[in-house]
Simulated scan of single mutants.
Amino acid sequence: MRLAPGVFLGGMVGTGLRLGIDQALPHADTDFTASTLIANTIGAFILGWLVAGLWTRPGLPAWVKAALGTGVLGSFTTYSAVMVSLVALGAAGFPTLGWIYLAATLLLGFGAAALGLQLGAQLRHRVLPDIPDAGSTL
């Protein structure tokens, strides 16, 4: 339960960022949802970078992982929106566009995560300032 405030606050940040992308790239229900594709690709890259780099650092407080991973990125990326888009595209008579959208989501997501993991691994060897663990008692 001590991690909940970090996840909650991180979720607010991620949701706000996601809303910003959706407002910058509006779309109809039957359109190719570029905002979702962009958010999920960025989120996959950042999570890969964090997992390979920051998460591996000794002494990183659990609240930081929870706030950034589950909170910010969990609310920023929305793979459930991909499924809704696929169903909407199929129902609107655009199943081929749906398959293209799914393929793009998977290819870009896996590619971004792999790149994030690779770049994050380079972070392991850099000296970073300590993050105090006082927040773990939130």
Score class of each variant (00 low, 15 high):
K65R: 09
L68D: 01
R2P: 07
V82I: 07
V82F: 08
L115T: 05
A121G: 15
P26W: 01
H27Q: 13
T36Y: 04
G20C: 05
A4S: 14
I21K: 04
A28G: 14
P132S: 11
H125W: 15
G53I: 07
L117C: 13
H27P: 07
Q122R: 12
T33C: 14
A113V: 10
L128N: 12
L47V: 10
A39N: 00
P95Q: 04
I21R: 03
M1A: 13
I131D: 05
A67F: 05
W63L: 06
S85C: 04
L50R: 04
V13M: 12
P129Y: 06
N40I: 00
N40Q: 02
G135Q: 08
L102D: 00
V72T: 02
A121D: 13
A34S: 15
F8C: 12
G6M: 10
F45G: 07
I21V: 04
L68S: 04
R57A: 10
T15C: 11
L117M: 09
A24I: 12
A104Y: 04
G135W: 08
R126T: 13
L73P: 02
P58G: 09
T56M: 11
A103N: 03
G109S: 04
L108P: 08
D130T: 14
L37G: 13
V87I: 03
G109K: 12
H27C: 07
F110T: 07
W55P: 02
N40V: 01
